[in-house]
């Protein structure tokens, strides 16, 4: 009898313990944040590839960011559809949600009969700026060696430099095309080439919101991959095959170079 009870307990524990996501505020199920595509910094892991699902939950989601939300009921529980509390905060679009304004946005799982099963809230923050991550910090400027190409991943951040989740569309332009060239971009990853020394600005259009990133093109004989640029740099004439060694510190940007750029 004791053995049977133990097996039953283990079985129930195994069935109920392994849930991804965040448990709802009523404890009736689990909410799972899912990324719409690899432009969402939360799922791309900033360098280890895209995963649409993650076991954890984003701390902040940016205004304009898109995401999906799934609800997993407990064992023998009722399945529910995820609805948004207010379309003024988080709106529903076809198969995903989009953050409309800053503030806490409630999402709830609703049964077919209309009963609310569980609730979760997302902290929605306005995108204050864009930056690049370097040594665990987000910086608002990039340093680029003259004649070299660098792959940079742009991150949407709050006014406190907290990285925001959510999928965005990205486009890039520069103030001075003679000084800096945008060779290519794939979502938030942009490949820049320093053409002339000096400072210029990279304009980032993030789902319709305009931000700028300062770029310094410096005249250096030898590139310094561990410099402040936050990017691995390769000679513009040698890419993409002849890449410079990347230190461990640059791992967060290694994947950007692997996609080849130009």
């Amino acid at each position: 009898m004791g053995v049977r009870a133990a097996f039953t307990l283990v079985g129930v524990a195994a069935l109920t313990a392994c849930h991804d996501g965040l448990q709802g505020e009523l404890g009736n199920g689990w909410f799972e944040y899912q990324c719409v595509n690899d432009t969402d910094t939360f799922c791309s892991d900033r360098g280890t590839g895209f995963r649409s699902r993650r076991a954890d939950f984003p701390e902040f989601v940016g205004v304009g960011g898109r995401f999906r939300m799934d609800y997993e009921p407990p064992l023998f529980g009722s399945a529910g559809q995820v609805r948004t509390a207010s379309s003024e905060r988080i709106a529903r679009r076809d198969d995903h949600f989009i953050v409309v304004s800053a503030g806490h946005g409630g999402l709830f799982a609703r049964e077919r009969s209309g009963q609310v099963l569980d609730v979760v809230h997302l902290d929605c923050r306005a995108v204050a700026n864009v930056g690049v991550e370097r040594d665990g910090e987000v910086r608002g400027s990039v340093e680029l060696a003259l004649g070299f190409a660098a792959s940079v991943r742009v991150l949407p951040v709050t006014s406190n430099d907290e990285v925001l989740a959510g999928a965005f569309s990205y486009s890039f332009t520069v103030d001075d095309p003679d000084r800096l060239t945008v060779r290519s971009h794939d979502g938030p990853r942009v490949r820049l080439v320093g053409d002339a020394p000096g400072r210029t600005r990279l304009h980032v259009n993030l789902s319709g919101q305009e931000f700028t990133l300062e770029v310094d093109v410096v005249d250096r004989q030898a590139p310094e991959p561990t410099g402040d640029s936050g990017a691995s740099q390769t000679p513009a004439t040698q890419e993409p095959d002849a890449q410079l060694p990347i230190t461990d510190d640059d791992a967060s940007f290694a994947e950007a170079d692997e996609d080849g750029g130009a």
């Binding site: 009523l26 509390a85 503030g103 806490h104 409630g106 809230h121």
Partner: peptide, 8 residues
């Protein structure tokens, strides 16, 4: 109740 918040 604040906008966008759900209270049970």
């Amino acid at each position: 109740v604040p906008l966008g918040v759900s209270v049970v």
